[in-house]
């Protein structure tokens, strides 16, 4: 929950120095509604490298602002999602993608949730079969008595 804390501090440290980093004012880049949708959809999938646990949509770091501007420019030029992601991974590597691409080294990651459910279900079915295979041991008398006492009060 305190994820932004360190990052805020980081920005503050930079600001507290004698001089601040220069942020040039850039003209706004107009986008068509489709391009705007692509731009809005892309930002949450890209990870900020300064505030590393924020996406480009959220981050207030100045590099994030620069990268947003670059992405916006690429969208305006008519580049598609793949090309824009490649532009960023060519520079920063796969780290910049919050949604890891499906490839050999991430196959297990994407399969894991479904494998886990599958394992769980298999265990459950195996367990149910085991309880049916072993002859139903009658609960011992004292257990029955215990359960009766407990149930009387529930």
């Amino acid at each position: 929950m305190k994820r932004r804390v360190a990052c805020v501090l980081l920005l503050a440290l930079a600001a507290a120095g004698a001089r601040a980093e220069v942020q040039t004012v850039k003209p706004e880049i107009p986008l068509t509604p489709q391009q705007e949708a692509l731009y809005r959809g892309l930002l949450p999938e890209l990870r900020c490298l300064v505030c590393q646990n924020e996406s480009l949509a959220e981050s207030q770091a100045s590099l994030a602002a620069d990268l947003r501007y670059e992405v916006r420019g690429l969208v305006a030029k008519g580049e598609d999602e793949t090309a824009i992601k490649k532009y960023l991974t060519d520079r920063y590597g796969d780290f910049v993608l919050y949604k890891p691409p499906l490839e050999a080294r991430t196959a297990l990651l994407w399969a894991a949730p479904f494998l886990l459910v599958l394992i769980g279900l298999t265990m459950l079915f195996a367990y149910a079969r085991r309880t049916r295979a072993t002859p139903a041991t009658r609960p011992p008398a004292d257990e029955a008595a215990l359960r009766k006492i407990l149930d009387d009060h529930s």
Partner: peptide
Amino acid sequence: DLEGKAGIDWGVYG
């Protein structure tokens, strides 16, 4: 590199 464009091309983040 006033605007940080070269920085982006080189993958500089800090």
